[in-house]
């Protein structure tokens, strides 16, 4: 019975993550547009964009390598694996034992690495700074100190905004490959939001009776943070790649600060 429940929770979690990611993407885009005074594309825009990309033909150049062929699917698979491990509405999921939050950060790095490889942006080192920021934010949160948490949250937020900014891949990717990368980008954003939500909210209640409550808490925190991040993105100036790297560096610095503050408090 327990086995059935934990696997049921796992499957439900996986089934929820994909539409939730696309919805959060649509919500963020709509809120951003409203904050800037335009009507916006609507909540279902990411679904339509995905369907449109799926309907198109894949075009690959004559020098397409193995990475070009299996890269998009690998990016999506690694991001989905990370999304499976992130806590959503319950901690009972059968999958949550396979990896902790450090593993989630590692899987996001994996996906990021492959995406950068696809993008031909191997020299853009700043893009990989986001994961150490996550790691440090998580580490500082694990310390028994209250003051470190806000700084850790700020670091996570900056890293999240910087990572979710811009088109998923600028290179010549089309059709199903583009759809996979779009879905991966939306999922990565949701993973970030869920990580931040996990730091903010009280521990999730165990047991299937409390799944609706857990679901409500998860939905509420994710929606609230989506709204907040949309507000932050609307306030921030235009998102250029150079600025993205600055944001990541700032996130890393904040995470370092959070770790130091947390450790100093833990010591005293």
């Amino acid at each position: 019975m327990t086995l059935l429940l934990t696997w049921g929770a796992a499957i439900l979690h996986v089934l929820l993550m994909v539409p939730a990611a696309l919805l959060a993407e649509g919500l963020a885009a709509t809120l951003r547009a409203r904050l800037r005074g335009t009507r916006g594309p609507g909540l279902l825009m990411p679904f339509r964009a995905l369907a449109a990309a799926l309907a198109r033909q894949i075009l690959r150049g004559p020098d397409a390598s193995l990475v070009t062929v299996i890269g998009p699917a690998s990016v999506l698979a690694a991001t989905m694996a990370a999304a499976c491990l992130v806590p959503s509405f319950t901690r009972d999921s059968a999958l949550s034992g396979a990896g902790d939050l450090l593993t989630v950060a590692g899987l996001l790095t994996f996906a990021r690495l492959l995406a950068l490889l696809l993008d031909g942006a191997a020299e853009d080192g700043g893009a990989l700074l986001a994961e150490p920021a996550i790691l440090l934010a998580l580490f500082s949160h694990a310390l028994p100190a209250a003051a470190a948490t806000p700084i850790a949250l700020a670091a996570l937020a900056i890293a999240g905004i910087a990572l979710s900014a811009g088109p998923p891949v600028a290179g010549a990717v089309s059709g199903r490959d583009l759809a996979m990368l779009m879905l991966a980008a939306a999922l990565r954003r949701l993973v970030f939001l869920s990580l931040i939500a996990d730091l903010l909210r009280p521990p999730l209640p165990p047991g299937p009776d409390d799944w609706p409550l857990g679901f409500a808490i998860w939905l509420g925190t994710v929606l609230a943070i989506t709204a907040l991040s949309a507000l932050a993105e609307a306030v921030l100036p235009a998102r250029l790649p150079a600025r993205r790297r600055e944001a990541l560096a700032a996130g890393l610095l904040l995470a370092v600060l959070a770790t130091l503050v947390g450790l100093a408090e833990a010591a005293s």
Partner: peptide, 12 residues
């Protein structure tokens, strides 16, 4: 996703 998209690649 395998139903979708038409392969037109000339890769390896």
């Amino acid at each position: 996703l395998r139903r979708h998209g038409v392969e037109g690649h000339r890769g390896i």
